[in-house]
């Protein structure tokens, strides 16, 4: 099983609903966030194009944050979800430095926090909070190991990219372009 997310940049409007939904669902303290929105514009007026996309931890297959963690606080669970166990985290921040996506932060309580793919919902068969709320329905969550899952089909049908592939992390968030 390989959980992954696909985000359709053709539909994302950059509204940040995914960010607030994550904040309320997961009690992410005000001033912090596990996901965010990127707006990339290129060209000159009036020949312009713009990509909007929602970003978060990529739950990398080859996760440097897990490799560099001295305590096993950062670990990978069933389905490839990368998690941090606050009770094992010493707050050395090596994982923060190792993540090319700046997806992690130090929770005010001291441990390192980041996107959990809403494992508490996923385990119940629900979608993550950000996916569930997105008003443009541009986010898809599922198992890429299952060729019949919606996400697998979508990735077969559409052109996609991942972020900073050069970093060799093998991200599991796909951006449909």
């Amino acid at each position: 099983m390989r959980y992954a997310m696909a985000i359709d940049t053709k539909k994302c409007v950059g509204c940040s609903d995914c960010v607030v939904a994550c904040q309320t669902e997961n009690n992410v303290p005000i001033g912090y966030c596990r996901d965010w929105v990127v707006e990339a514009t290129s060209g000159t007026y009036p020949d312009l194009s713009m990509e909007l996309r929602s970003e978060r931890c990529n739950h990398c297959t080859n996760a440097p944050c897990v490799r560099c963690c001295p305590t096993e606080a950062s670990h990978i669970v069933e389905g490839g979800i990368v998690l941090v166990d606050p009770d094992q985290c010493i707050g050395c921040k090596a994982c923060i430095a190792s993540c090319p996506y700046d997806a992690r932060f130090v929770h005010p309580e001291g441990y390192v926090d980041k996107c959990t793919f809403c494992i508490h919902k996923v385990e119940k068969g629900e979608d993550p909070a950000c996916v569930e709320v997105c008003p443009t329905k541009c986010m898809y969550f599922g198992d890429t190991d299952d060729p019949n899952s919606d996400i697998s089909k979508l990735l077969k049908k559409r052109k996609w990219k991942t972020l900073i592939p050069e970093a060799g992390t093998e991200p599991n968030i796909y951006y449909l372009i």
């Binding site: 940040s16 912090y32 966030c33 929105v37 990127v38 707006e39 990339a40 514009t41 290129s42 130090v106």
Partner: peptide, 15 residues
């Protein structure tokens, strides 16, 4: 070449 890149809403301390 990207002209303008804006990360909105993310202001995590120390990041």
């Amino acid at each position: 070449m990207i002209e303008e890149l804006i990360i909105s809403g993310r202001m995590n301390p120390e990041i």
